[in-house]
Structures are given as C-alpha cells and as structure tokens.
Write a protein that binds this DNA or RNA. Structure first.
Lengths: 345, 345
DNA sequence: ACCGGTTGTCGAATCGATTCGTCGAATCGA
DNA sequence: TCGATTCGACGAATCGATTCGACAACCGGT
C-alpha cells in the first residue's frame, strides 16, 4: 500500500508538503506542486480514509436508514436509495446502508463509532423514535418524510395533503361530482405514517373545497379483501364516477378489480393516482400526482450536508431547514368526464 | 467524544487493558473485566472505527456495486441490496453503497482509500470490466451473477439455463407441445448479460430434450412493440398453447396483451414465469421458476467474507468458491393442459 | 550592510485503538 | 526461604494523514 511518505520520498519533499498539495490549504510553489502531483499519479496514490478521518473527525459518509420491511418491500425505496447515493456523491459523500432491522441501536452504533457524519432517515413516522435518538446523540440528520415534530430536524417531503386535494380538484374540474378516494392501507394509517395521515386529511379537505362528494376508503394489503372492498364501493347508491388511488402499489390489483366489475377505465370510471406508478401497469398510463423522487433525494441530501456544516460551525441556534415540495399534476391521458353510469345513478 | 482513555481512567486501568477486554485476545482477571465493562456501559463507549481501521487495516465494510440504470430501475435490485445488507451485518460487516454511475473508477477509489474490505458486484456481465479492475487491484470481491470467466472470482448465480429448461419441461409434462419462450429484452441480450444469454441457451436446449416445439422470441422494453410482437407470435400457424416469460418485469403488459387477443390465462394459454414476479400482478398468481433472492444474497455475502479471510491468510492458490443455485419450480396454480385452441390448430 | 517582511517548505505533535515486550506480584515446589 | 514459573496489567511504539509553529531563503527599502 502506498502512503503519503512514499509519495513524499519520490517527489523529494516532506509528507506535509504532499498533504498541502492535496488540500490546497497552504501556498505551494508551482514547481513542487507539479512534481508532487506527478508522483501521486505515478503511484496511483489515494489517501487512506481511516487516517484522514482519525485526524479530522470527518468521514465523508452519510448513513442511509432504509425503512422497515413490515409491509413488504416497496420498490420506490430502492429508487430513493440509488438517487440519494448519486446525490451524495455529488456532495462528496459516500453512503452507508442501514436496514430498518438494525433500528435505533444500529444508528447509535454508527454515530458513536464515527462511521458517518450524518444520517438520512427514510420512511419517517409521525412519532419516530429515531428522531429522539439523533437529537440525544447530537448527530446531524435529515428526514425523508415529515414527522409530527417538524421543527426538531431538517426534513423534506411531498406535500401529501395538497397532493390528495389536487387529485380530487382535477377530477372535479373535469366534471366529476361523485369521487371515491382509496387511501393507503389501514396498517400504514395505524402506524401513523406521515404520508398516510396527511393524504387522508387532504382527501377529506377536498370535499368542502370542491363541492364534490368525496368518499374516503382505506385500503388493505390483503388483495382478496381489497377486491371485495372495491366491488362494494363501486356499487353503493350514487356510485362514484371517479377514483383516486393513493395505494399505488396495489394499482394493478385495483384496476383488475375494476375491470372485473365490468367497468372500463376511463370511460366508466376515471382513475387518478397519487404517488409513483408501479414500474409496470399492464400498458396503462394514468393521470397522476407524482412523487418527485429525484427532487426529494437531492433535497434530503443537501439538508444532511448542511446539517453537518452547521454543526461543525457550532451554529446551533439556526433552525433546521425544511422543504415541503408542492405536488405536480401529470395529465397523462386526459381525464374523461363522467360517463353514462353517472346518468344512470 | 469518549475514547478508550476515558474508559481506562474511569475503570482505573491502562488503555491497553480496556482494549484487551474488548478483543479478548489476552487473559484478563474477572474483576477488572467487570470493572472495565461497567465503565464502558456507563459511558456508552464505542471504539472509533477510523482508529481501529488505521491500526488493523480492516474496515468491516463491504462495498456493494449496484447495477447500471440503463434499462431503468429494476425493483428486484433494491431487494437484493436490503437482503445483502442484512446478511452482511450477520457477518459483522456494514455495507457501502455504490451506484453503477461511479463505475470502475469508483471501485478503485474505495479500494485504494481503504474504505472497504471487499466488493460485491451486482448484475455482472459476461465480460465485465470491473472483474479485471478487482484482480488488478488485488481487491477481494464476490459476484452476483456469473461472468464468462467464472474461475477468476467467486460468484453465485441462479442456474438460468436449467431454469429455462425446467419451465419448458413442466409445460411439456402437462401435455403442451407448442411452446413459446419469451426471453429477456434485446438490449439485455446484446449487453451480454449472463442471465439473458444463459436463459436463451436453456430455452433452446429444452426443445430437443422435451420433444416439444419451442419457439424462442426476444422481448423489448418498448411496450407498444411488445404487444404487437405478442399478437404476432400468438397467431402463427400452430399457435402455442403455452408461454414461458423470462422478461418478468413486463408481465403485466404481456398478460394485458394476451387478454387483448381474446385469450384467457390459463384456459387458452398456459403461462409460466422465469424469475421474480413483479410485486403486483393484478391479483394473478402464476406458476414459476423463482429467483432465490435470499439464498443468493446470503451466498454472495459469505463468498465475500471468505475472500477477505483467504486474502488475509495469504492463501492465494485456493481457487475461489462458486455457488450455482439449481432452479426450483413453484407450482402456484396448477398448469392447465392444452386448451381447445390446440384442437383448432 | 542591515533589517522587517514574505514565501515556501520542513519537522513534530496529534487523532484513538491495537499489540508486543516487559515487569511486578502471586504461586508453587524443593 | 528461595528461585522458578505463571498470571495479569502496564507502557510505548505504531498505523497514515493533517496542521501548526518554526525557519531558511529571498526581497526591497533605508
């Protein structure tokens, strides 16, 4: 293994000089700079991360806490991981992966052993124990998702409340008056996931705002029950002419259930999604309010980097930054107006 | 930050004694062991990873190289990342995430700066430049997927050739004589992905072995073209009574296209998948040859750990271990025999 | 010719844990 | 009681990079 001494020897200078060439923190004559650089290139020298970290107490690593796998694996989390990793590199950081299985003890271990400079917490819950742990440890952190106490740590999130409202508003604008809102699963709602709770709230708020009749239903992970539930909600009196789906992971099932009821999308039932479409949707595209994965990833990474910087400066009174991302509507295929079924009802 | 000195002081012993309590590499009296342990607990002491690494040249970190995002993001890769991360923890390792965007230079940087003890390479291609880089760097590595030169580094993979053959054989056993095999996309095949090439080979080998007429088709990422291609392949002379799909990511599209042709699954067309089903499949379950994600993750992690151990021992002549996992057939809904269409043809 | 001020480089201390050699105290046999 | 042996803990060197104080060499001004 080549060290800074090897480089120094080859270039005929002191190790400290090599260090200054690398960091640029002191003036070095152009001559020696070139000699040293050449020695570095010839030897293929890279500073040892451990030695650097030991001295400077900076790792240039972000810990990324992936969500709990309770409700199974969510495809979008993998995308977040990749996007965040690339964003981190752009800020000069590497990413250390932590699964939720390790939980708070895992984060504590990483923080105290100094393996990362900050943590990014995914799938934050309204009352998330990891937040208290980060504060107690004095460890910089940024949240992907908004918790109940949103002043404690920097966070970014889609404005789920606005997203739900927006979806309903678009349907109302197309003439729909009877709208069903299929929220996330009961499990997610009971777990107090922020996106679940706020989506629900946005859906409820949409009714008075648009004047439409918005009936809100919770979804379920049990696909057989979900199909039955959809059958029921489509056959009440004054059946809905439009459906908003926040439980996007189940969209294929849901569309299949709708088809099984003999309804065509969008002629008989307009469907709008809130959140990321699953990779594959039977060739169907839907109008939707999208989850801005790249923006959120970039934002949470930037917030983490800022949290590190401000801690280093000891500027504690600065309130942590936030970024509530406004929802954007992707028209996709134009929303159909209420179909013949509406006339029947 | 609490250091080993703080612990030593509190316990009234020398720092080296604390170190020996932690590592157990020398005999320590029960009395002092307890005193030291108590001090550690009270202070919540964790050894600094950087100091430890500097001294021992071991990081207890595995670098995980995620695949290139060329063909978009594949959901199964996220699952692998999580499974591998958990498996790594079980071996005492953390996982450093690297996206394909960083490529070989990224791996070189990690190896030379000593940020990881070994690398796990995902989505290995038949002729993968990363392999040469690892060998040149003398950096331990394990492959998820089998390359052309499979003696250079340890690897694990599903036996894709056997998997494809198995799927055809099961259909043949159910009485099917005219079978279509929809392989992976042209793009993957041209990129010389091992699973694509070997699946294709297995499908071709299945014809003579089973005596069935197996027609092999390549898939495409363009869903409109894919639908047309499926239409064509279903309407040749002697149309197939069964379909094997290796391009599982497109399954929802494919099933939709089949339905659009007026065919019911499985009554008119038996469908068997090779690989992991997408999270959601419109409520449909299919018989399939599964991709054993947990086994593969555990195996590749074990191989990486072994590669580290053998390098440390300097036992270079030991050939790297392999693990070719035999395919398993998951019956799911029983395969339907050839339907009325077969009689027509 | 001498002196204050730059400029560019060097040497040494430092970060925190590990590990080897050493050394005092306890134990045992003769 | 004394020397040999074992047991348990200590001190110091070490890993590789960073950083601060020091210090030559050079420059211009009086």
């Amino acid at each position: 293994m080549t060290t800074i001494k090897d480089v120094a020897q080859r270039a005929g200078v002191a190790p400290s000089t090599v260090s200054y060439v690398l960091s640029g923190s002191r003036k070095i004559s152009e001559d020696t700079r070139r000699t040293v650089q050449q020695a570095i290139d010839e030897l293929g020298y890279h500073p040892r991360a451990s030695a650097r970290t030991l001295r400077s107490t900076r790792t240039n690593v972000l810990a990324l806490a992936l969500p709990r796998v309770a409700g199974g694996y969510r495809a979008v989390d993998g995308r977040f991981a990749i996007e965040i990793s690339d964003a981190a590199r752009a800020h000069g950081y590497d990413v250390l992966l932590m699964t939720a299985q390790e939980g708070v003890p895992g984060l504590r271990r990483i923080a105290r052993s100094g393996q990362a400079d900050a943590a990014i917490l995914m799938a934050v819950e309204m009352d998330d124990p990891r937040i208290a742990a980060m504060l107690e440890l004095g460890f910089p952190a940024a949240l992907l998702g908004r918790s109940a106490d949103d002043a404690a740590l920097p966070w970014t999130d889609l404005d789920w409340e606005a997203a739900a409202t927006l979806a309903v508003r678009e349907l109302a604008a197309a003439g729909h008056r009877d709208i069903a809102y299929l929220a996330t699963t009961e499990r997610e709602i009971q777990a107090q996931r922020g996106y679940a709770i706020r989506g629900l709230a946005g859906a409820r708020r949409a009714a008075p705002e648009t004047g439409a009749d918005v009936r809100v239903h919770q979804s379920t992970g049990d696909m057989a029950r979900l199909a039955r539930r959809i059958g029921t909600l489509l056959h009440g009196e004054r059946p809905p002419t439009a459906l908003v789906v926040q439980h996007v992971a189940a969209l294929p099932h849901i569309l299949a259930a709708v088809a099984a009821e003999g309804l065509r999308v969008p002629e008989d039932l307009a469907v709008v999604a809130v959140g990321n479409l699953p990779d594959d949707l039977g060739g169907q595209d839907l109008p939707r309010v999208e989850l801005p994965v790249p923006e959120m990833s970039a934002a949470v990474t930037r917030l983490a980097a800022e949290a590190i910087a401000t801690r280093t400066q000891g500027t504690s009174p600065t309130p942590p930054g936030h970024l509530l991302i406004p929802p954007a509507f992707v028209p996709g295929p134009r929303i159909a107006p209420p179909g013949p079924r509406a006339a029947n009802a």
